[in-house]
């Protein structure tokens, strides 16, 4: 866990519909690390995840985000995806008329082409998808349906993790993937994510609850409050939050500017 950070966020300010949400976020993620971003509702967790993924609704007002040494904010979302960033959506979108399997294939082709890899042929692709779908214990029937169309909440989340497993990004961001999941589904999702842990990959887990972190054990935990990281620590911080709630962490921990480096 050395060398330059894969993702480096400095003094990031972002607003939505003119309303400031992020007010100076600092965060670095190195390859091989798993970071948890926790915080109460409205603290800016999802905004942070979406700004990194490139959602244009959010207006970046100040600060910088560098990814593998490049200015991430100047890249359109598809470019970020092809460069290895993946956002598992809190609310995965339904796309009637486009089958799930076609969508997966198009996404994988786009990423592979960009990496200079051969596109997989039909047999290889199917084999890969069927292997990965077992990992997330998802019904194969869902591959032939339109993307997320009529899926249950749990099926949508599994489908996100399936995409994650197929696309094998360098930096995976999970935006409240645990919300709305029962404990069994949560374990399945965690298993899928854990299998992707590797020295080459960075993972950011955005969550309101500690629960998910019992299964995806983070290297670092950050508390976001009112658009700033007010505290950073190891996994024990998450347990402490569970016990004491978010009330005690409101004051920004300015000693290190909110920077996540221990």
């Amino acid at each position: 866990m050395s060398g330059n950070p894969m993702l480096s966020i400095e003094n990031l300010h972002a607003a939505i519909d003119g309303k400031p949400i992020l007010r100076g976020v600092n965060l670095s993620v190195r390859a091989g690390e798993v970071h948890a971003i926790m915080g109460p509702n409205g603290s800016g967790k999802s905004t942070l995840a979406n700004v990194v993924a490139g959602r244009e609704r959010y207006e970046v007002r100040a600060g910088s985000v560098r990814y593998e040494g490049r200015d991430l904010l100047s890249m359109p979302p598809e470019e970020r995806a092809k460069e290895g960033i993946f956002l598992a959506f809190q609310h995965p979108v339904e796309i009637p008329g486009v089958t799930n399997l076609s969508f997966l294939k198009a996404a994988l082709n786009a990423v592979r082409k960009h990496r200079g890899l051969q596109e997989l042929d039909v047999v290889e692709f199917r084999g890969m998808v069927l292997e990965r779908i077992r990992l997330v214990e998802m019904d194969e029937e869902l591959l032939l349906r339109a993307v997320n169309d009529g899926f249950s909440g749990g099926e949508k989340k599994r489908n996100e993790i399936l995409q994650l497993a197929v696309l094998e990004p360098k930096l995976a961001i999970l935006d409240e993937t645990d919300s709305g999941l029962d404990i069994d589904a949560l374990k399945v999702v965690a298993k899928g994510v854990n299998r992707l842990r590797s020295p080459e990959r960075g993972i950011i887990v955005v969550t309101h609850y500690q629960r998910l972190l019992n299964y995806i054990v983070p290297d670092f935990v950050h508390v976001l409050s009112e658009g700033q990281i007010v505290r950073s620590g190891g996994r024990e911080l998450a347990l402490e939050l569970e016990e004491r709630g978010y009330g005690w962490v409101h004051a920004p921990d300015t000693a290190n500017g909110g920077e996540a480096r221990p």
Binding site: R55, F89, V93, I95, V98, A106, A107, A110
Partner: peptide, 26 residues
């Protein structure tokens, strides 16, 4: 739908293709 467009783009599908595909699917 901006949400649908962003979802597709976030999976590496370029904007023009995403627009065309959503139009076709509609």
């Amino acid at each position: 739908d901006e949400e649908k467009l962003f979802y597709m783009r976030s999976r590496g599908i370029d904007e023009a293709s995403a627009k065309g595909l959503l139009t076709y699917a509609f």
